[in-house]
Computed example of a mutant assay.
Amino acid sequence: MQHKHAPRPLPLFLSLVGDVARDDPALARRALAGLARYGEAKRDPLPPGHSAVASVRGASLRDLGGNGSTVVLIPSLINPPLVLNLPGASLAEALVGQHRVLLVDWGFAGPRAEIDLGGHVEQLLMPLLMALGEPVALAGYCLGGTMALAASNLAPVTRVATLAAPWDFDQYPREGRTALGALWQQSEPTARALGVLPTEVLQAAFWSLDPRGIVAKYARLADEPEGSVALARFVTLEDWANDGEPLPLPAARELIEALFIDNQPGNGKWRVGGAIIRPDTVPALHFTAKADHIVPAASAPPGERHAVSAGHVGMIVGSRARESLHRPLLNFLA
């Protein structure tokens, strides 16, 4: 029997549908029909994993191939690294023609359960980069871009590209930061007991930023013909979004309290390894997504920016990523 998939957490999704479509029963029916399409859709097997060239406490550097100067791709801690090497829309594949491409795989949360956000840079990312024995370029997505800038203060890095990465957290809507703080207060006792912030809590935080958009995308799915490229892409990306590791408690606390609430990076007060982290220690280019509901474009690090007409995930995997992201990124890395 085929395994059925559902958004995680499903009760919250159903609550969103009820709230958003309270006065629009047709929208509610289509969103639930889209949910059924997602759950019953056929899944293609994931591509085989790539070999690791270095490993530290469960985190590793995966060798994606290529020749030339080395570029290390750094994903967020919150979702799996697959989005940077997605079949049919691979950022890594676009870079392989001109560079040796390595991908950070943070691994399972257990081996890093006692490490805060800065510790992931200092104790995991730094040793992985130092194991290469050469200066490298970094390209970090979402929180991975924030961490890439921290690493550029501590490791031999030639340049950094950030992709929809937050830095000035004061640029997030005030109500969103307030809601996140309240969610953290409610969730912290459970997270403390578990030692991790469950993925369901993180998903709830993301959904709260754009509840109408979440319901609308499932409603659109109801109209997709069977076997369409759009349906397959939706399933792959939604599985990716629902398949992240929980966030180690110290990392969750630093992310929410030090970054989102206190805005230590934007205020020039974020310390990693005893050093104040600056965003301008090496040449950098910051890609922003104009329709980003997860990381507002205005929150990007200071410096040169390149705006992409897409959303937070679409900038990475969208049909226009080759022209809007891959080409200017290759020019910058060259």
Rank of each mutant, 00 (worst) to 15 (best):
Gly34Cys: 03
Val71Thr: 01
Leu103Lys: 10
Val235Asn: 05
Pro248Asn: 08
Leu231Cys: 02
Pro166Phe: 04
Gly107Trp: 12
Pro250Val: 13
Leu14His: 07
Ile316Gly: 02
Ile115Gly: 02
Leu197Gly: 05
Ser228Asp: 01
Gly133Leu: 08
Arg8Phe: 06
Arg37Glu: 06
Pro250Arg: 11
His50Phe: 08
Lys4Ser: 07
Val160Trp: 05
Leu61Asn: 06
Leu249Pro: 07
Ser187Asn: 10
Glu175Asp: 14
Leu73Lys: 13
Leu194Met: 15
Val101Trp: 05
Tyr218Asn: 02
Ile294Leu: 15
Leu95Ile: 01
Gly65Glu: 11
Ala139Lys: 10
Leu10Met: 09
Thr146Cys: 07
Val71Asn: 05
Leu32Thr: 00
Ile256Val: 14
Glu304Leu: 08
Leu333Asp: 06
Thr281Gln: 07
Asn267Gly: 15
Pro9Leu: 12
Asp168Tyr: 00
Leu132Gln: 13
Trp167Phe: 09
Leu64Lys: 12
Val96Cys: 12
Arg37Asp: 06
Glu93His: 04
Ala193Gly: 12
Gly268Tyr: 04
Val201Phe: 04
Ala26Met: 12
Ser90Met: 13
Gly318Val: 03
Ala151Glu: 08
Val104Glu: 11
Arg305Thr: 03
Gly195Arg: 15
Ala137Val: 01
Ala94Asp: 10
Pro301Thr: 02
Ala297Lys: 15
Leu117Ile: 03
Met126Pro: 05
Ala94Asn: 09
Thr190Ala: 14
Glu257Leu: 15
Leu143Tyr: 02
Asp280Ala: 04
Glu304Cys: 05
Leu10Lys: 07
Asp23His: 13
Ile276Tyr: 08
Gly144Val: 00
Leu180Tyr: 01
Trp106Lys: 09
Ala26Leu: 09
Pro25Tyr: 12
Ala307Gly: 08
Leu143Trp: 01
Glu200Asn: 09
Pro81Glu: 13
Leu197Phe: 05
Val136Asn: 10
Arg233Gln: 14
Glu226Lys: 11
Ser309Gly: 06
Ile294Ser: 14
Asp243His: 13
Pro75Gly: 01
Asp19Gln: 14
Gly144Glu: 06
Lys217Cys: 08
Leu95Pro: 08
Ala284Tyr: 03
His3Met: 12
Leu285Tyr: 02
Asn331Tyr: 02
Ser324His: 12
Val71Met: 05
Pro166Thr: 00
Leu61Arg: 15
Met126Lys: 15
Pro211Leu: 10
Ala191Tyr: 01
Gly133Tyr: 03
Arg8Gly: 02
Lys269Phe: 00
Glu226Asn: 02
Arg327Asp: 07
Ile214Thr: 10
Met147Asn: 06
Gly266Ser: 09
Gly68Val: 01
Arg192Trp: 00
Asn79Thr: 11
Pro11Glu: 13
Phe287Trp: 00
His293Thr: 11
Arg57Met: 07
Ser76Ile: 01
Ala109Pro: 08
Asp116His: 07
Thr281Asn: 07
Gly39Glu: 04
His5Lys: 12
Ala230Ser: 15
Gly18Thr: 00
Arg327His: 04
Val20Pro: 13
Leu237Cys: 09
Pro75Ser: 07
Asp44Phe: 02
Asp105Asn: 15
Glu114Pro: 06
Phe206His: 08
Asp170Tyr: 00
Pro7Thr: 04
Gly311Phe: 03
Leu202Tyr: 12
Ser51Cys: 05
Ser187Pro: 11
Tyr172Asp: 14
Ala148Gln: 11
Gln203Cys: 00
Gly144Ile: 03
Leu14Phe: 02
Ile261Leu: 15
